[in-house]
Write a protein that binds this DNA or RNA. Structure first.
Lengths: 330, 330
DNA sequence: TTGTACGCGTTATCAA
DNA sequence: TTGATAACGCGTACAA
């Protein structure tokens, strides 16, 4: 397999000249550039990403850190959309993605994480599904030793960007909308997510504000993003409320399932807009996020950080509506 | 960050001695091994995977090739289970996984694929979702330049192993079972997968054999693994049949949905055992595969190939039954 | 059993 | 605008 020195010989130039052409340096004459590119084509030369990563200091290798605890959690479409979106967009920016599931990082201290990423020659990070219990990981990224984009956690800084929808506003909006579209709502049951989730707080605040502004009573329960728990909580508190607002679609489905078993009707809304909703025979309003797009944006942002951009907070769009069966089958 | 030479100095040994300790060579005295390991611990030394990959010829880097056509397909849980299972098991074998979505490989000739993987220093492959139209990729893996495990495609050889359930037998079994569990079945509608799918043929043969052995009439239609198409085909052919056998769960759901709209009942069975089935209010029997386990096994097999094992065909277990809502909520 | 020295394929520095 | 050459960190003949 041809390497740079082969190309250099064939083109009749120095080896470092080839490197400069490959990496689009501008101080190269058109003539030599052409010679080199011709040789590249002729020899089917493809740069060796490993050798490049070894010698280079600046950032083509991006770590994609996905927090998943067990393989049953891996059934959800959200992470797949995140991962796939990231890979698609990484192609555009010519970034090499190193996929890292959180299980590999378990038990590592902030310092060990640093060493780990360094040893993998990773020069930037995009993080999905981070939650509050990952103390060491959080400490590590806050050292900002690597440019980092965090999806769905409210961290930003000099070299750190957050990307997410405005969860608080979205939860506020959908709660208001549910109240307005139904009559006689005076008591809300709010099923929140996990205590250790970053978005949990944001969404809850949105619901609290909405209830306050509408002057409505609201019962709040943590449901851990668990469908089963939402089922149980609905059985326990569903009857007294006349609107059930859930912090995730799965929980909304659990609530609906309980309502069916209780043989009573309550309007229910969820959050996220997952495909599964299209299969549920119950009108569940939701906050539709485009996870694929969010992830692409996260990659854009990390590319920007690598190129010297400053960290900031990116707010993505959402849309309130229903997921219909006709839209999800293909 | 400490490197081998730092460790060597601290331990008072040569640099290659460190390398040998790290890689578990046996011709090292216990005394020096201890010294080295102590130095490793003290310096928080972690081997640099990149440098190792660059210099070494033998196989720690594994390419995980996932064929996905468009990002809407990324909703399926199957690939996520495959990917997660692979990463989990790769940890056990100390393999570095390089995730590769098929979109990166599009339009590449067999030779270009070879160059591509070489440039990534990939020394073995596990392939998911391969189908018949990937001529160049198929040509490439059949060159057997890399030890390869193919999931759900019937390829094996000197250095190539296939891992899958016995699709033919499974489809045969479930078809027979459906017929036996219902009375008055004399005509089957079989909704097959995509013409270019490798498992499509196997499953279809199973259904054909079952119908033959039972002396039943069977109408077969290609439904492209598409829920929508299954819906349409069921509308067209569902009434004349009294049993609908589908080559995938999604198609089974499409069929059920059509039956509901037609307001008639027909027993329906699917294939795969995806979580979504638990949410469908219709008894759909299916062939349950454990994708997570299949993928782990695929990694075991590739590790075996790397260690000199010969290629062969691995047959995984399946189970016929229902997916119940109680089992899928958590 | 241990250590020296070269090779892996780049990138980066600096002199020309 | 170009091209030697020294890193980058590790594996491995080969010599000791």
């Amino acid at each position: 397999m041809a390497n740079m020195s082969d190309v250099a010989k064939k083109a009749g130039v120095g080896i470092s000249t080839v490197s400069k052409v490959i990496n689009n340096y501008d101080n190269i004459s058109d003539a030599t550039r052409k010679k080199v590119l011709a040789a590249v084509k002729e020899l089917d030369y493809v740069p060796n990403a490993i050798a490049s990563a070894l010698s280079s200091k600046n950032g083509k290798r991006l770590g994609l850190v996905v927090f998943i605890n067990n393989h049953r959690q891996a059934i959800d479409e959200i992470n797949m959309q995140y991962i796939f979106g990231a890979f698609q967009q990484a192609k555009e920016h010519n970034l090499d993605i190193v996929t890292i599931f959180s299980s590999v990082l378990q038990g590592k201290s902030a310092k060990e994480l640093d060493v780990h990423f360094r040893s993998l020659r990773i020069q930037s990070l995009v993080v999905y599904g981070l939650h509050k219990e990952e103390f060491e990981f959080e400490k590590f990224i806050k050292m900002e030793t690597l440019p980092t984009v965090v999806v769905d956690a409210p961290f930003s800084g000099e070299k750190m960007t957050s990307v997410m929808v405005d969860h608080q506003k979205a939860q506020y909006d959908i709660t208001q909308k549910m109240v307005k579209e139904h009559v006689f709502i005076d008591k809300i049951l709010y099923l929140a997510g996990r205590r250790d989730g970053y978005v949990t707080d944001l969404r809850m605040q949105g619901a609290v504000n909405a209830a306050m502004d509408l002057n409505l009573d609201m019962e709040t329960q943590y449901s851990d993003f668990s469908e089963k728990k939402a089922y149980q909580l609905t059985k326990e508190f569903g009857e007294q409320a006349n609107l059930i607002v859930c912090a995730s679609d799965l929980m909304a489905i659990g609530a609906v399932s309980a309502l069916n078993d209780m043989d009573i009707f309550r309007p229910v809304c969820g959050f996220d807009g997952i495909t599964l909703l299209g299969y549920i025979d119950y009108e569940i309003m939701t906050v539709k996020q485009d996870f694929y797009d969010v992830s692409k944006r996260a990659i854009d942002e990390v590319a920007s950080l690598i190129n010297g951009g400053a960290g900031h907070a990116v707010v993505m769009d959402y849309e309130i509506g229903h997921i219909k069966y006709e839209d999800v089958i293909m």
